[in-house]
Amino acid sequence: MVVQDFKVDLNKALVFQVGHLGEAYQEWVHQPIVCKEGPRFFENEFWEFLTRTVWWAVPVIWLPVVFYSISMSVRMGHGFPEIALMVFAGIFVWTLLEYTLHRFLFHIETKSYWGNTAHYLLHGCHHKHPMDGLRLVFPPAATAVLCVPFWNLVKLISVPSVTPALFGGGLLGYVMYDCTHYYLHHGQPSSDVPRNLKKYHLNHHFRIQDKGFGITSSIWDRVFGTLPQSKAAKKDR
């Protein structure tokens, strides 16, 4: 149900409010509030707890799974060069998945009550409150659920002895992605590569939100033509 001229009360739990915005949701969610204190999502303390994740939980929880998965392929007889290739392939697959999810799922346009609600939970909250440090990485419970179809996908395209290392590489790519994402928002890079990557990502948040979908790199934005123009290039036209 959409309420005409609905206004979100930022002092109340947001998740079940945003759906009422209807078609106005897209404009509202892309007007960021730059504040390190995140909003409350749910009145229920348990559900609210599940939405908050410290960044270091990602490597602590998932790196052991990465190493265990890779070790399974080692025990099946694969040597270091083969393992390295499998892991690199998994990371490469993740970069494409990262881009695809960000572009086609995280930025899907919604206007229904439940569509807006689901989008806000999935990614809209991050664009509305981009500096919320406890909602920058994916909650471990949600990641665990998504690992199941990812494992089945890898299993479908590879042989049994390769599947664990390829899966481990993809999961390592995810860990790199989430840690990089947190750093781009809260880190202060001193060298050119991370500094440019931070600028590139913040450009997606604050200037051109329908381009620049890569997080760990801009490679797929270049391949698929979603690389945003620089300010200098726009002035020259």
Rank of each mutant, 00 (worst) to 15 (best):
M1C: 06
M1D: 10
V2N: 07
V2S: 04
D5V: 06
D5Y: 02
F6N: 11
K7S: 12
K7F: 01
D9W: 05
N11Y: 01
K12G: 01
K12E: 11
A13R: 14
V15C: 12
Q17W: 04
L21F: 06
G22I: 01
A24Y: 10
Y25A: 12
Y25C: 07
Y25R: 08
I33N: 03
I33P: 01
E37Y: 05
P39Y: 15
R40V: 14
R40N: 11
E45W: 10
W47S: 05
W47H: 07
F49P: 00
T53G: 10
W55Q: 09
W56M: 12
A57D: 00
L63S: 04
P64L: 11
V66S: 11
F67C: 06
Y68F: 15
S73K: 02
S73V: 05
S73R: 03
V74G: 02
V74E: 02
M76F: 03
G77V: 09
H78Y: 14
H78N: 11
F80D: 08
P81F: 08
A89H: 06
I91L: 06
I91K: 02
F92T: 14
V93D: 04
L96N: 03
E98H: 10
L101F: 05
L105D: 00
L105Q: 06
E109C: 04
T110E: 02
T110P: 05
K111W: 09
K111A: 13
S112I: 07
Y113M: 02
Y113R: 01
G115K: 13
N116L: 03
N116T: 08
T117P: 05
T117E: 04
H119R: 14
H123V: 04
H123I: 05
G124E: 03
K128G: 05
K128M: 07
P130Y: 08
M131L: 15
R135N: 15
F138N: 03
P140H: 12
P140K: 08
V145T: 13
V145D: 03
V148Q: 08
L153W: 14
V154A: 13
P160R: 02
P160S: 10
P164M: 09
P164T: 04
P164S: 09
P164Q: 07
F167V: 06
F167L: 13
F167P: 00
F167S: 11
G168W: 13
L172F: 11
G173I: 00
Y174W: 03
M176L: 15
D178T: 01
D178S: 09
T180F: 05
H181V: 05
Y182S: 09
L184C: 11
H185Q: 14
H185I: 00
Q188V: 11
P189Q: 12
S190C: 12
S190M: 07
S191A: 08
S191E: 04
N196S: 07
L197N: 12
K199H: 12
K199D: 15
H201K: 15
N203P: 02
N203M: 09
H205M: 14
H205L: 13
H205C: 08
F206I: 06
R207D: 04
R207N: 11
R207Y: 14
D210S: 10
K211Y: 10
G214Y: 04
I215D: 15
T216H: 02
S217M: 03
I219S: 06
R222W: 06
V223E: 03
L227Q: 15
S230Q: 08
A233Q: 14
D236I: 15
